[in-house]
Design a protein around this nucleic acid. Structure first.
Lengths: 345, 345
DNA sequence: ATGCTTATTGTAACCGGTTTCACCAATAGT
DNA sequence: ACTATTGGTGAAACCGGTTACAATAAGCAT
C-alpha cells in the first residue's frame, strides 16, 4: 500500500494536507477545541490515524512553555527508602499529568549540581531534592531561575526552599527515648556515612547531652552486610558491655540483628536493637524490629502535590512536617535490667 | 540595577540584543562553533551570564529532532530488584548523555500501554520495558513508530524486540537442582502473582515434569510479610512433610526464613530455603540465603548501552543473555536426609 | 591596485506546532 | 430586505532556537 520511502515521521502539516484542511484546524482537533464541525473532525482524525501521527512534544513545549516534566534528585535508587519514596512520588505526579525524570547524586553536592543542570537543560519545570545541603552553585542557580524546588526527607521551615519531611533529630530522639526508658546506658549507634548527608547528621544530634549514657558511634556503608559485620565484630568479645544497638537506618538495624543472630546472641533478651525507617521487611524479621516509622510514601505524595501546585499554579508551597511514630516498641527491645549477656542458656 | 518587571525568562534573542550580535552568533557560541572570534565570544558569554540564560531544551529538540530522553517502564520502584536495575541503568545512561524518565506499570499491560504513550508524548526517544508480555496496542504502536525498545529481565531471542536478560526458567531450574541434589522431594514453591507477570510464569515452568517430586505452589503478594505469614501457616502443623521452600524471589525467601525462625524451626537443619535474585541482604541473614544470582546491575548497564546505541546510531542491538549463578549453595540449604523436623533439641 | 582567499558575522528561512485575527456563510432579529 | 450574530475555517505570525547562505572585511599573492 504505502509508498516505498516514508522515513520521516509525519507532521501536523502532513495531516493537514491529507485531510485537506489548514494546520490550524488540525491543531484544533488535537486539542479538542469545540469549534470544529463533526465532518472535518472525522476527516482530520482519519488522516491522523492513517499517518500514525503523534504531535511533537518539543513543538508543543515551545509554544506552551510547559514540558510537564519534573526531576527528582536522590542519593541513590538502590535503597528501599528512596525507591519507595519515588514510587509514591511518581504515582502522584502521574496523576497530575507530570512525568518524572530521576537522577542520582551519590550524596555528592557537585554531582547533584551537575545533574540538576542536566535536568534543567532537558526542560524540567521543577525539582525534588533530598535534604538541605547543596552546593552554592546550585543554590544560586535555583535562585536565579526561580525554579520550583521542594526539599524532602528533612523538615526545616527556616530553609530557603520549602521542605516536606520529618524531623530527623526527633526521629532519632524517639528511638533513643525507647532505649533510655528501658534503662540502657551503653548504646552502640550504627549509622551510614555522615559526610555530605545532612539527614544522618541531624539524627546524630539527638545524642548530644546525655552525660550518663555511653555511646559508641560506628560509621559504616549503608548496607546490611556492613552492619552485620560490625555487630559480629563488636559483640564477639565477651567483655562487651553494650546492651543495645540503635541504628539510624533499618537496613543497618537488620544487619545488626542478623549479626547478633550469627553470634547466637538473643535479641532482645541479651541485646536490644532499634532502627529508624520502618521498612516493610522490618516487620517480618524474627523478632520484628522495633523502629521509628518514617512516612516516606506519604512524603512522596505530599511532595508531588506541593511541587505540582507550584509548577502548575505558581503557588509556592508551605513547609510540611510529617510525623514519625514508634513501631513495635517491645519487639526487638527489652529493658536493660533484664539483659543477660553471657548468662543465656 | 535591573528593571522592575522582568518576569519572562530571557531568550537567545535577548542575549543577542545585549551582546549586540546576531542570534546566529549566539547560537554558535552556545554550540562551541569554532568560527567565532575571541572578542565576540566573550561579549556573548558575558550577556549569557548576565541574563542567566539557559537555552530552551524544547527549541533545541525541535531542530535536532533529539530530546536525549529515554523512558523506563517497570512494574514498581518499590522492589529492590527493579530499583537496583534502574540505579545501574540511570548511571550508564547519564554517561551516554541520556536522561531517564521512569513510569510504573503495576504489572498491568493496559497501564503500561497508557504510560508508554505518555512517555512518547513527552518525547522519549526509546524505551526500556520489563518482560515480553505487552498489550497488542502497545506492540502495534511500537511497530508503527519504529520506536527503539529494549525488553529486560527476560531472555528470548525470538521475541520481536531485542531482549537483555537472563533465562528465568533456567534460574528456577538451578534453584530446583540444588534441592533435588540434596534429596528434597517435598518442596513448597513460594511465588509472587503470576497473572500478567511472564517472568514468574517462566520460572514456574521449571517445575513441570518432575513426577517423583511433590510441589506445593503458594502464590502470594511479593513482600516479606506475606512469605513470613505463609511459612508460619504452612509449617505450624507438625504433620507438614515439606522439607524445603523454593522462593522465586529472595524477598519471599527471606520472609520464609523469618517465618520459620519465628516457629523455632532451624534453617537449614530442619527445613531448607532457597531463593532467586541475590539481594544484598540475602548474604547477611543468618543463615545467609542460598540463592540464584540475577545480575541486575549488569543488566541495567547492558540495557542502557544497547538502547543508547540504538537511539544514537540507529543500530538495533542483538539480544543478550546474562548468566545466572548459584550463591552460597550450602548455607540455607542442607540435604533432605538430614532433615530433623520435630526431632530437634 | 587588483583579484582571490579566508575569517567572521548577519539575514532569513526553517523546525512543528499554537494562536490571533480576518473572513465567509448561515441563521436570527426587526 | 438588511444588519447583527454565531460557527467554522484558513492565512500568517509566532514560540526559541539552528543553519544555509549571503555579505563584509581583512590577508595575501600577483
Amino acid at each position: 500500500m504505502a509508498g516505498v520511502l516514508e522515513k520521516r515521521k509525519s507532521t501536523l502539516r502532513d495531516v493537514a494536507r491529507m485531510a485537506e484542511v489548514s494546520t490550524a484546524t488540525v491543531s484544533r482537533v488535537l486539542n479538542g477545541n469545540a469549534l470544529v464541525s463533526e465532518g472535518t473532525r472525522a476527516k482530520v482524525q482519519a488522516a491522523i490515524d492513517a499517518l500514525h501521527f503523534v504531535p511533537s512534544a518539543a513543538a508543543r513545549a515551545i509554544n506552551s512553555g510547559r514540558t510537564h516534566v519534573v526531576g527528582a534528585l536522590v542519593p541513590t535508587l538502590d535503597h528501599a527508602i528512596f525507591s519507595r519514596f519515588l514510587d509514591a512520588l511518581e504515582e502522584e505526579l502521574a496523576g497530575s499529568g507530570l512525568s518524572l525524570v530521576v537522577a542520582t547524586t551519590k550524596e555528592d553536592p557537585d554531582r547533584e549540581a551537575e545533574r540538576a543542570r542536566a535536568l534543567v537543560d532537558i526542560g524540567v519545570e521543577g525539582l525534588i531534592v533530598s535534604g538541605v545541603t547543596r552546593s552554592a552553585d546550585l543554590d544560586a542557580f535555583i535562585e536565579k531561575r526561580e525554579l520550583p524546588v521542594v526539599a524532602t526527607s528533612y523538615f526545616d521551615p527556616s530553609y530557603h526552599l520549602p521542605t516536606v519531611g520529618y524531623d530527623n533529630e526527633r526521629a532519632a530522639r524517639s528511638a533513643l527515648g525507647l532505649l533510655l526508658e528501658g534503662g540502657h546506658r551503653d548504646i552502640a549507634i550504627y549509622h551510614g556515612p555522615s559526610a555530605g548527608n545532612d539527614r544522618t547528621r541531624a539524627r546524630l544530634k539527638a545524642f548530644k547531652k546525655h552525660p550518663r549514657v555511653a555511646f559508641r558511634f560506628c560509621e559504616m556503608p549503608l548496607d546490611v552486610s556492613a552492619a552485620s559485620d560490625a555487630a559480629r565484630r563488636d559483640f564477639a568479645e565477651p567483655c562487651c558491655r553494650t546492651t543495645a544497638v540503635l541504628a539510624l537506618s533499618d537496613v543497618l538495624a537488620q544487619g545488626a540483628l542478623f549479626g547478633l543472630q550469627a553470634l547466637g546472641i538473643s535479641v532482645p533478651r541479651e541485646v536490644s536493637v532499634v532502627g529508624i525507617d520502618d521498612l516493610p521487611s522490618s516487620a517480618a524479621t524474627t523478632p520484628a524490629l522495633t523502629t521509628v516509622r518514617l512516612p516516606v510514601r506519604e512524603m512522596g505524595r505530599r511532595a508531588a502535590i506541593a511541587l505540582a501546585k507550584w509548577v502548575e499554579d505558581g503557588i509556592r508551597p508551605a513547609p510540611e512536617r510529617l510525623d514519625v511514630s514508634v513501631m513495635r516498641a517491645s519487639s526487638s527491645l527489652a529493658p536493660a535490667s533484664g539483659a543477660l549477656r553471657g548468662r543465656g542458656p
